[in-house]
Simulated assay, not measured.
Amino acid sequence: MPRYLIERSFPDGLAIPANADGAQACAQIVGVNANSGVTWLHSYVSADRRKTFCIYDAVAPEAIRQVARRNGLPVTSITEVSVLTPYFYY
């Protein structure tokens, strides 16, 4: 399955609390994604919390756009990626 890097912009900053409410919000996103065969692997959040860089597995970029709309999440860009690790060369 293809892997993608999704960049998202949050002008007011990402506001997911580090508590049960935040866990519930993330679980809800995972559930909506699963219904469309999309898997959120992990995300990186900028220090100012205005950008996220998320790693997803999905059959196509359009599947990611669809679940983003259902989850009320912005999508700035979607780029298909592969893993490059320095340890591959050892």
Rank of each mutant, 00 (worst) to 15 (best):
G22S: 14
V38E: 00
F10C: 03
Y4F: 15
S77N: 12
R69V: 13
T76P: 05
A58K: 05
L41S: 11
P61Q: 02
S36R: 14
Y44C: 11
S77I: 07
G72A: 01
H42T: 13
D12P: 05
Y56F: 15
S77W: 07
A47L: 14
V75H: 01
T85N: 13
A58Q: 04
I6L: 13
T52C: 01
S9A: 11
G13A: 07
Y44M: 13
I29M: 10
I16H: 03
S36V: 10
I64Q: 00
V67H: 00
T39A: 09
V75F: 04
N19R: 05
A47K: 11
F88R: 15
E7L: 15
Q24Y: 06
C26R: 14
R50P: 01
E62Y: 08
V30G: 06
L41R: 14
G37Y: 04
S43D: 10
H42D: 12
T79I: 14
A47P: 08
S77Y: 05
A27D: 05
L5Y: 04
L14A: 03
T76H: 10
V45F: 04
S46M: 09
D21W: 02
W40K: 05
S43I: 06
A23F: 08
Y56D: 02
F88I: 13
P86W: 09
S82Y: 11
A60V: 06
V38N: 00
G37N: 09
H42P: 04
T76N: 12
D12S: 12
S46F: 03
D12H: 09
I78P: 00
P11L: 02
A60S: 15
N19W: 02
S46G: 10
N19A: 01
N35M: 14
E80W: 05
Q66V: 10
A27F: 06
Y87N: 12
A34W: 05
V30D: 15
R49L: 11
F10M: 10
V45G: 01
R3V: 14
R70E: 15
M1V: 13
Y89D: 13
F88S: 15
V67N: 00
P2Q: 08
S82C: 10
L73V: 06
G37I: 06
E62M: 10
D57K: 07
I55H: 11
Y87T: 13
K51Y: 09
Q24T: 15
C54L: 07
Q66N: 12
L14I: 08
A60H: 12
A47D: 14
S43M: 09
S46D: 08
A23P: 06
R8F: 08
